[in-house]
């Protein structure tokens, strides 16, 4: 019998590390999708990743490429600095919803509006994970967190910010898509979007941004599989998946 051929293995761009993420946290899947993309497009050796502050701050221990770790919310500014002085390197920021949609809104909006040629992977899990489950700008209405214990009240805390749609309003060309990784089918589609994003950067085409809906079992107070279901039932209807903006399609006036 011929020797078995491996058809699924750890990508080289993902270190062989035991991650600190909670069981069932889909950060791990997103890390793998980014790493697989770096492998498949042959970008690993000229990539510089920027880690945020949040659960995924430690992604600098997991991505097997040069990494910088940013102050909270400042990753797009660091990425701008790197990309401007090393325009032929591949630069990406990996950020959570507290990092990007709260303290870092100015940085992300202006990086996108300047059309900085780096890629952002925005992980939206509707909560602050690292600090133990506080309300985030993307926390859902009536979702209970430690800082909205009676559920998010949209009258005082406003509605969740649909970042991908907000950024899509900017006129500067960009590739913006929202995907999810809570089921294999969506994960396969998410990988296509992440791959497309890095493709556009490799072609020095435009800013690329992929918002990835992700779970947080620990702080949602659900099992991993219940979290998958909650994401499907509650988040997906609000955070509509799909392509929001493409450099190939000019904005419709």
């Amino acid at each position: 019998m011929s020797a078995p051929t491996t058809i699924f293995r750890r990508p080289e761009a993902l270190r062989d590390a035991f991650t600190h993420y909670c069981p069932g946290c889909t950060h791990g899947i997103i890390h793998r999708l980014v790493a697989e993309t770096l492998d498949e497009l042959g970008l690993r050796e000229r990539t510089v990743g920027i880690a945020p502050v949040g659960c995924s701050v430690l992604c600098y221990n997991y991505f097997n490429c040069d990494m910088q770790e940013a102050a909270h919310g400042r990753a797009p500014a660091l990425a701008t600095g790197v990309k401007r002085v090393l325009p032929d390197r591949i630069v990406f920021t990996y950020q959570g919803d507290g990092d990007l949609a709260s303290i870092g809104t100015a940085e992300i909006i202006h990086a996108a509006n300047r059309g900085e040629k780096f890629t952002t992977i925005f992980v939206n899990n509707a909560i602050y994970g690292m600090t133990g489950g506080q309300m985030a700008p993307t926390t859902m209405p009536n979702q209970v967190t430690t800082t909205c214990p009676r559920g998010r009240d949209v009258n005082t805390a406003g509605w969740p910010i649909p970042v991908a749609d907000v950024l899509a309003q900017l006129r500067t060309p960009a590739y913006i898509e929202r995907v999810a990784v809570h089921t294999p089918r969506y994960t396969v589609q998410a990988k296509r979007a992440i791959r497309q994003a890095f493709q556009y950067q490799a072609e020095n085409r435009c800013y690329s941004f992929v918002e990835v809906l992700s779970t947080c079992p620990t702080n949602w107070g659900k099992t991993p599989n219940e979290s998958v279901q909650w994401l499907e039932d509650v988040m997906v209807p609000y955070f509509k998946l799909g392509l929001k903006k493409s450099p190939d399609r000019p904005p419709v006036d």
């Binding site: 660091l78 701008t80 600095g81 090393l86």
Partner: peptide
């Protein structure tokens, strides 16, 4: 913070 990024890139 752009200074940080560019300086860390050498």
């Amino acid at each position: 913070q752009m200074i940080f990024g560019a300086a860390a890139a050498g």
